[in-house]
Design a protein around this nucleic acid. Structure first.
Lengths: 151, 151
DNA sequence: GATGAACCTTGCCACGGTGGCAAGGTCAAG
DNA sequence: CTTGACCTTGCCACCGTGGCAAGGTTCATC
């Protein structure tokens, strides 16, 4: 009987813009798995449940999930996204706080980019001097082995 | 009595260029923890042991560890490093194989760099248009929320 | 009003690469 | 022989994601 009610509720609810976790996943681009994970991290509030214990999401929840997806797309960490969500939900936020977080993230990205670029440059330099044929001698291996560049 | 022998062996061995894991760590720049980890991954051969079960490293082992450290510094994965070590140890290798691996890694790096740069660019663009003052309206949050750029 | 496919639930394990901690054994020097 | 530094194994954690298993629910269709 409560099962019957639940079914009715979910169907009805769906018409009113409520979604199962699978639908929410389709609509937000976040897998059900990760939605549950974000809930466990308290990034999103605990979802409402049907009588059968299925999670139920509103259009607003989908909106939040999309927010998270975009933020991940910009490379923010879960932690930073938590902060961003807090700011988003807070009408009295100062845009300065958001900007500061963004700038810090930009500098983080710059550090990572610089690191990768220096790896790339070092490796490209080594590869350039490698014959790349059937002979065994190779400046890449020599460098890794700590030998002075054979040139 | 085997303990006595072990002590003698380790002391003597040390004089001949054998090292405990801690010494190996100091000399290679890889923590003891990671040395054990690399052994479990079979990146390096199982270390010899004293009678007391302490790992013992030779100068050649230290050399291998340094090789690994440099390769990590260039961003190679453990898996790739395994391959590189195999090539290094194989006198009959073709430098072509090494070069191919290096080139592939360079393109991997390029992909990562491009990804981070596009994040950086998108975020910088948003941050540029954010007042960064005490007012709440903020194009960064608007964008994450999926609203059209408010300008 | 039952059946069955599609979906959901929780819980555990994995990756890569690193760090921490605990409980116990060994080393070397005094 | 004592002591403190070092070593041993083993387990748990991070982050973000994916997989699998065993079981329960939903809902369209007959």
């Amino acid at each position: 009987m409560s099962a019957v009610k639940a079914r009715a509720e979910l169907s009805e609810a769906k018409d009113q813009g409520y979604y199962s976790i699978g639908k929410a996943a389709d609509l937000s681009g976040i897998t059900p798995k990760m939605i549950r994970h974000y809930e466990s991290l308290q990034l999103i509030p605990k979802a409402a449940r049907t009588a059968g214990d299925y999670r139920v999401y509103s259009a607003a929840d989908i909106h939040t999930l999309r927010f998270i997806r975009r933020a991940r797309g910009l490379g923010f960490s879960m932690d930073e996204i938590g902060t961003l969500l807090g700011l988003w939900r807070n009408q009295r936020r100062a845009s300065e706080q958001v900007k500061r977080l963004a700038i810090k993230h930009i500098t983080d990205l710059d550090h990572k980019i610089a690191e990768l670029q220096s790896m790339r440059a070092a490796l490209a330099e080594l590869a350039e001097h490698c014959h790349g044929d059937s002979r065994p001698d190779c400046p890449i291996l020599s460098d890794l082995a700590g030998l002075p560049p054979a040139e």
